[in-house]
Write a protein that binds this DNA or RNA. Structure first.
Lengths: 331, 331
DNA sequence: CTGTTAGCGCTTTCAT
DNA sequence: ATGAAAGCGCTAACAG
């Protein structure tokens, strides 16, 4: 009963316009139910008084908030900002507000955030969720949920298939005459890593190329740089890295070792988060994160107004983006 | 009167526990007003029933939402994600939810977002706001407002002084024996650019160095790369770039031109958004965006519980971060 | 087409 | 220490 009461209320407008409160409400939400005259008069009075509908009261009454929550493991991971941005822009078209949550890669934190948000949103989008399948199902039972890059049966999800682009990259390398390559792996627990590793292996085998895998615990610039000696020792002429950051590290390592790219060695990254901002510009695999963000929001809207929709599984194919770090196999 | 009614309400808990609704409310918000026994019993019953306080109803009644909004010009600009992240983590400590808005660099969009958010937040944080002073004052009159990197008298603000770090960078260069340098400028309309440009000029003059300025309309990797011929023609032995992206482009351009960094030429970036992910790792100026995000939120909290606070002007100094792209002046 | 009347779920005086 | 009751501002039957 305290708190800042800063607004003109519907009652004041009603009194000033000489109508019932419900009419004022209708003037804003269902103007077709009122005579045009009345609507105009009410709107004029409202304008004059500086009336602004109270979002909270409306939400309490209707159960509709016009909010969604988007939770990501790490806002600062360059993969997410474009996704966040596009989800946001799409939300804007629907006049929705978006809460952003940072789970800090921790399931517990993510769980907490979902709880904090769920009372004031229509639905949630979980990107690369760290939650267990059980928790996801539990939350999905309470609120519409859309997943990005997480494949849980029964929950609507948008999946980015980096495998398709990686396969293209391998084919691209094969065409350039490379016969032996190495895949520099990312975190073994990662869905994306498994996907990429498998794609490299499968398409390389199909094209008669040799593949070796070099593991790196964390996908970092340093890890990529450190992998260079092993890569050179492998005898391969090209490398596909788990992500762009590692590829960038590899580029640096090669440069240090005096190996020219792409003349003597070819490098392919993954996720296209660097733009063309390396020298030479990095050949990589597109990420589709922009589409994923947009699609996730749209899907959530669909789920919202037809709660029958469940278990949608929307796969986004990726492609190789050929730039300057891949060239004909040496010799 | 429709909408999803998915919750156990306070009334149900009250009945099940054999107490008044107000007691249930107090058990959650003012347990000290009740006997410990009662509190325990109520909490147990609530737990058992799966009661969760309705955020919206509470907000309507108290006028307190526990939400803040953070608006940035572009989520995908690498300067902002760390800031967003830290503001978020700080908000988390206070159990606040944060709305994120992307103004897309447009004042009109920003204005719209502020309007959309302001009904359901305690206050707002505007980072690098594109709004006019008038609009900012107008909004600040309705809701507590904190600005980041925008200096408007009468409004609490956090300013990142990149000038201090740039001056350090120039001193660092002078110590290395450089006598002539060029500043590759960013957008002329930018507050930061003016700040940095002036710092370079001032400290260079003080140290007896020559400075030339090369302008670039947009701060991009390409712009940096394109500036290389002009930089080389200038006869300078070091360059300070408006931001890291341009510095990275300059690095690429130098590499293409066969100029070795830092042996033959020194390069300093600004904002430290690349981490050490270039080769050689870039010497740059710290950005303090993490502190800015955190400080902005804290300041907002301060403003909230002591509305007397206004016109706080909190300046964050920056520093040069010496890495691998600066070395002794050649010859 | 418009007014009357219940709520939505919670907090907060005011009593007791 | 606890209960009763009056809202917070808006929406949505239900009447007319």
């Amino acid at each position: 009963m305290t708190g800042r009461r800063d607004g003109v209320t519907i009652s004041q407008v009603a009194k000033a316009a000489g109508v019932a409160r419900s009419s004022v409400s209708r003037a804003f939400t269902r103007p077709d139910m009122l005579s045009q005259q009345t609507v105009e008069r009410i709107l004029a009075v409202a304008e004059e008084l500086g009336y602004v509908p109270n979002h909270t009261a409306r939400a309490l009454s209707t159960g509709r908030h016009g909010n969604v929550a988007l939770i990501v493991p790490d806002v600062a991971n360059p993969f997410f900002p474009p996704l966040i941005r596009s989800a946001q822009m799409e939300a804007d078209r629907f006049d929705f507000c978006v809460f952003l949550g940072n789970s800090d890669e921790k399931a517990k934190q993510e769980d907490k955030l979902v709880g904090r948000f769920s009372g004031q949103v229509e639905g949630l989008i979980l990107a690369s969720s760290r939650l267990s399948d059980e928790r996801i199902h539990a939350h999905a039972a309470l609120r519409p949920l859309v997943l990005i890059n997480r494949d849980v049966a029964g929950i609507s999800r948008i999946l980015i298939d980096s495998g398709s682009g990686v396969s293209e990259a391998v084919a691209h390398l094969a065409e350039l005459g490379h016969r032996s390559l190495v895949y520099v792996a990312g975190p073994s627990s990662s869905w994306s890593n498994a996907q990429r590793r498998m794609a490299v292996r499968k398409s390389a085998t199909a094209l008669g190329l040799e593949v070796q895998t070099i593991a790196a615990a964390v996908p970092s610039f340093q890890a990529g740089r450190n992998a260079v000696p092993a890569i050179r020792a492998s005898g391969a002429t090209a490398v596909v890295a788990f992500d762009d950051l590692m590829a960038q590290g590899i580029l640096a390592g090669m440069s240090e070792a005096g190996v020219r790219v792409p003349e003597e060695f070819s490098v392919v990254g993954c996720d296209d988060v660097l733009g063309a901002a390396t020298y030479p510009p990095l050949t990589t695999v597109s990420n589709r994160s922009v589409e994923a963000g947009k699609a996730a929001f749209s899907l959530l809207m669909d789920v919202l107004d037809s709660s029958a929709i469940r278990d949608v599984r929307y796969m986004l194919e990726t492609h190789v983006v050929v730039r300057g770090t891949t060239g004909p196999a040496p010799r």
